[in-house]
């Protein structure tokens, strides 16, 4: 059984109740159409489960097939330095067709980031390191495509259509 390595910790972006009994981790790629389809499903599940659910997003850009995926991930991590990771995560998934660098800067402005700071952070090696670190943790954890979900630390191999995933989470 493939297990999440390392477990969710201080470096992770967490949404929802940090102490929830049910933890859902997604390894995702911002340019992957399947992840784009998963995005509203997760939102809806979060709404339905409320504070029973903790949601974590880790970067897993498949750079060879999705040439903009790494930069999109870097943009979200750069936004995190201004406390707006989730705002960037959302606006990127809502505009998946347009992920060139100039678009990313526009999204930064639209969610109210200090664009000058964002542009500097976007080029900072530490931000790329965070993305690559997420990728390596995914490789170690047995991520087998995007999106891959882990529920309470174990890889979830079944359907992530809303009804199926919600049913499974509620059974935990």
């Amino acid at each position: 059984m493939s297990k999440l390595k390392p477990p969710v910790g201080g470096k992770d972006h967490i949404q929802g109740n940090k102490n929830a009994a049910i933890e859902l981790v997604e390894y995702g790629d911002y340019q992957c159409p399947h992840c784009g389809r998963a995005y509203p499903i997760i939102k809806s599940i979060q709404e339905k489960m409320g504070d029973k659910l903790k949601f974590v997003f880790r970067n897993f850009p498949l750079a060879e097939v999705h040439p903009n995926a790494t930069n999109a991930a870097v943009a979200a991590e750069a936004a995190a330095l201004q406390g707006k990771f989730w705002e960037m995560h959302d606006i990127i998934f809502e505009h998946q067709e347009h992920l060139g660098d100039s678009h990313l800067v526009k999204y930064a402005a639209r969610i109210g980031l200090d664009v000058a700071k964002f542009t500097v952070d976007f080029e900072t090696p530490a931000v790329l390191d965070k993305v690559e670190g997420d990728f390596e943790s995914g490789a170690l954890s047995g991520v087998n495509g995007t999106p891959t979900f882990f529920i309470n630390g174990e890889r979830y191999n079944r359907s992530w259509e809303e009804d199926d995933l919600l049913y499974y989470l509620r059974s935990k």
Binding site: F135, A139, N144
Partner: peptide
């Protein structure tokens, strides 16, 4: 037919 099939996935991990 999926993105990130097994070979595409390993292709991204060659550095590792």
């Amino acid at each position: 037919p999926v993105c990130g099939d097994q070979m595409a996935l390993y292709n991204e991990m060659l550095k590792i």
